[in-house]
Design a protein around this nucleic acid. Structure first.
Lengths: 133, 133
DNA sequence: TACGAATTTGACTTTTACGTAACTCGTGGC
DNA sequence: GCCACGAGTTACGTAAAAGTCAAATTCGTA
């Protein structure tokens, strides 16, 4: 595990721009340390970025991702705040389960579409090159 | 199964605005029939809308959703187009599987966060009201 | 057929998530 | 000391996805 990563290393690894990473810092999602003015990303920062991009792929907004990654930090010492986090965790879990149902439904539709295409090709007497599923 | 739905019925059912539905029509995602100038939504339109909103929840852009719902239509009669659809189906399936991995990873992180909170509460000697998982 | 509620269309505005341009700073090599 | 070069900052721009508002229709119905 490396000590630090530069911003451009992370842009290459994750296929995003420096602007994007700096934007996430401006938005308070990530807090790299500095050597002079230059950002240095620790492995934990890199991991956090990975989490952020996961959230993006799942369609969460920046404001939501901010809330989510805040839940991953050291739990606070106050009971009310802990309960608030637990509630949010439960909410997000519900959302994710909805998304999973959405994925399954969508996969079902795709399969139906594929079947329809294959049937149509058979009708036309067209040979297929390969079959994925 | 009803014959037709009005626009406001669908807005209530799905929790979206009339502007949104009309926007989707402008974007060519949906094509309700008309009685005069008034839109009438068939059950198939309602189902299509459901598909569109699924895509939205999963973070697909309108342009992607347009492509996706086009794949659900009657397959064309030309072999090249059929093969193109099959390729797109395979691509989307790959994306959905990535999203599913993202969901599982994120659920894992949430679980870890929950554990950390519960541990912290135990340390503090705080009673929990309930446990979801 | 007159009225109010719902609908349509069109234009303009807003928010989000960055992109782009223009410039400065700091550091290593010669 | 100068230069190249990557990184930083500031400010403005923009595309997508609606929200908002106004004006014109249209519909059910009394």
């Amino acid at each position: 595990m490396r000590e630090h990563y530069t911003i451009t290393e992370l842009t290459r690894e994750f296929g995003i721009s420096t602007r994007t990473i700096r934007f996430y810092e401006d938005e308070g999602l990530i807090h790299p340390i500095r050597r002079g003015r230059t950002r240095l990303f620790r492995p934990s920062d890199r991991n956090l970025l990975k989490n952020i991009l996961r959230g993006k792929r799942l369609g969460f907004a920046i404001s939501e991702i901010r809330e989510i990654v805040q839940m991953y930090r050291e739990p606070p010492g106050e009971a009310g705040q802990l309960r608030a986090i637990l509630r949010k965790v439960a909410d997000r879990r519900g959302e994710l389960e909805q998304k999973r149902r959405d994925i399954d439904d969508m996969l079902g539709e795709l399969e139906a579409a594929e079947e329809a295409c294959l049937t149509r090709m058979a009708e036309l007497g067209v040979g297929q090159t390969s079959r994925s599923g």
